[in-house]
Write a protein that binds this DNA or RNA. Structure first.
Length: 274
DNA sequence: CGAGGGACCTGGTTGC
DNA sequence: TGCAACCAGGTCCCTC
């Protein structure tokens, strides 16, 4: 479910309900997420949330004494609800706040996580090696070009590598490569600097656009207010294999790369040699 | 170091 | 209708 835009939409949705509030209670119904939720998560109780930040697809609930690190995995979903709301299936955690609201984590597949760290979150093992945020100036075509010189993997898998740039998941990798006119199976080291500038630009564009549209609802993603995202209506290639390209009218192709569905237009995204 | 694949989970869809 | 196989938005971690 959540790629970077969905996580950012969730962050924006929960922030006004959380910042400045004190945690009254942390209810863990099922601690077995990707990693067990540590018992130290209870240190949150009595602390005030000073900020809700995002690094890559991790949400950081900050306090003066530590940070809760939250990841939504493939199927995670956050809701803001009143105290006492009846929990349903896969509602694994509630963080109850002093304003009478609670943050509820629902995660069907349990690929998400909820961790606690007293160090600056950026120093955490999961965050310290991450590449630049795609929507900052640190991420640009030159960065992609420099980092790709010795990489023989396909350009699609290259841009989905969190050490290269964070937040580019399967949907938006497909979309950005289409918009930049680059074949997803092109070796990363064979893409020239001009094409990487276009690719970086399209990654920024597609992510920013998806955020303003409330994310991409495929199956069941909703923002923290329960509203779906609308970006799905703007998808050019993802989920459209066999359908006509919206640019040239040719049929879109599908291949599997690293186990992930990859859709592209063979005419608009030519594979160059060398 | 880079590349590739399995692992973690549930549930919806597809096909026999 | 039943059941098995396959697929899904992520990414860590192990091997080669």
């Amino acid at each position: 479910m959540p790629e970077l835009p969905e996580v950012e939409v969730s962050r924006q949705g929960i922030t006004p309900f959380m910042v400045g509030e004190t945690v009254m209670r942390v209810v863990v119904r099922n601690a077995s997420l990707r990693w067990p939720i540590p018992s130290e998560i209870q240190e949150l109780v009595g602390l005030t949330i000073t900020a809700v930040r995002r690094r890559a697809k991790y949400l950081l609930l900050e306090t003066d004494w530590g940070t809760a690190i939250l990841h939504l995995g493939m199927s995670g979903n956050l809701r803001i609800l009143p105290h006492g709301s009846v929990a349903g299936k896969h509602d694994h955690v509630d963080i109850e706040l002093s304003n009478g609201q609670l943050l509820r984590l629902n995660d069907t597949r349990r690929f998400g996580c909820l961790l606690w760290t007293r160090e600056p979150a950026e120093q955490h093992k999961l965050l310290i090696k991450l590449g630049p945020e795609p929507l900052t100036e640190d991420f640009n075509g030159e960065h992609l070009y420099q980092r790709s010189r010795k990489r023989k993997i396909a350009v699609k898998q290259f841009i989905m590598d969190n050490h290269v740039v964070v937040g580019v998941g399967n949907i938006y990798a497909n979309e950005a490569l289409f918009s930049a006119g680059i074949h997803p199976q092109q070796a990363a080291c064979d893409v020239n600097e001009t094409d990487y500038q276009a690719l970086a630009s399209e990654i920024k564009k597609v992510l920013a656009r998806a955020i303003t549209q409330g994310g991409t609802t495929l199956k069941d993603f909703t923002g923290s207010d329960g509203k779906p995202g609308y970006f799905v209506q703007e998808l050019q290639v993802y989920g459209r294999a066999g359908e006509p390209c919206r640019h040239c009218g040719g049929l879109l192709s599908e291949v599997r790369m690293g186990g992930r569905s990859t859709v592209f237009c063979p005419l608009c995204q030519p594979k160059c040699s060398g």
